[in-house]
Design a protein around this nucleic acid. Structure first.
Lengths: 165, 165
DNA sequence: GGGTGGCTTCGAGTGCGCTCGAAGTCCTAG
DNA sequence: CTAGGACTTCGAGCGCACTCGAAGCCACCC
């Protein structure tokens, strides 16, 4: 199964989105609606994708995709031959899970979130609460990272000074 | 050894610095010279600190501080009774190591950096190179986190919409 | 029909970064 | 003098998130 995907679609969409946010210096561009639109999947995807294609599209290894399914983070149908066939919904869930993971949410929490989602729409306020709480954690982590970056930058600019570190 | 530190010095300086950068909404304040000055140690520290005081000051557990010493990330003198006595230099190194760790540098890399520092001033360009390279990694991570935050925010604002995740 | 390559399942292994517990030492307070 | 508590060393254990390998199935190509 060589990648017809590669011909018709930008590969590794998630990574592409991240790179699209890149600037040369250390400054961080604002993230706006444009970026979010860029994250949408192309319309002309095949009905279902094999695991290798999903791996390429998301940057997650096939091994890890199987692992995610095993522990219940995603549910994936099989084709006649017993192979995983990711439809758009499954792909969307994989990508969302991936973003949650990239944002630092522990696997156990992602699992609880998915569990709630599977229970039905009546859990939506609990899920929303989880996301809001998680958002705070992400913001805190961002702040921490920015501060640490400032310290590293300070060290870089004062290099040649003290050898304290 | 109850904390005389607590009376005379702001506790958990590292955490205090991070909290000083906090804002109520999700926006991130600029990190400027003011913040960097705030990170400096107070002048009226005792000559040496015990491990519990360093733990309180840095937010690193005593267990972890011992572990860091074991694996060579810091070197600490002993007092007459064989206890760790952190002088200003040692404390500075602990804090710098902590910032490197918080910025996501793996322990092995911190170890290599410290090794180079111990070799002498002639390794300063290699250390600078390490810091510059690490800086790129931190910036990349920041971008990734910001993008993931945008996705989470998107999900939050569109809640009640699709149940794709 | 035989080989190649990608998929399947399952369970076990890996790497990182702590984290803990046991057993002993030393100082201080009562 | 004795009890308590904070410290010491050492080695082992843990939690997380993968990551890998073995053994087998299935489709396609020569």
């Amino acid at each position: 199964m060589t990648s017809t995907l590669e011909d018709h679609h930008p590969a590794a969409r998630l990574r592409a989105v991240m790179e699209s946010a890149a600037t040369d210096d250390g400054t961080l561009p604002p993230l706006d609606g444009e970026l979010l639109r860029a994250m949408a999947l192309p319309d002309d995807l095949p009905e279902t994708l094999g695991i290798a294609e999903v791996a390429e599209l998301t940057g997650i290894t096939a091994h890890t995709l199987r692992y995610y399914e095993r522990i219940g983070l995603v549910t994936v149908d099989r084709d006649a031959a017993g192979r995983r066939a990711y439809d758009r919904a499954a792909l969307g869930r994989v990508m969302f899970v991936t973003w949650l993971r990239l944002s630092g949410m522990p696997i156990a929490s992602v699992g609880r979130y998915v569990e709630l989602a599977l229970e039905g729409p009546h859990t939506s306020d609990r899920r929303l609460a989880m996301l809001l709480e998680h958002r705070e954690a992400v913001v805190a982590h961002l702040r921490e990272l920015q501060t640490a970056l400032a310290v590293v930058d300070y060290k870089i600019t004062t290099y040649g000074g003290s050898c304290a570190g």
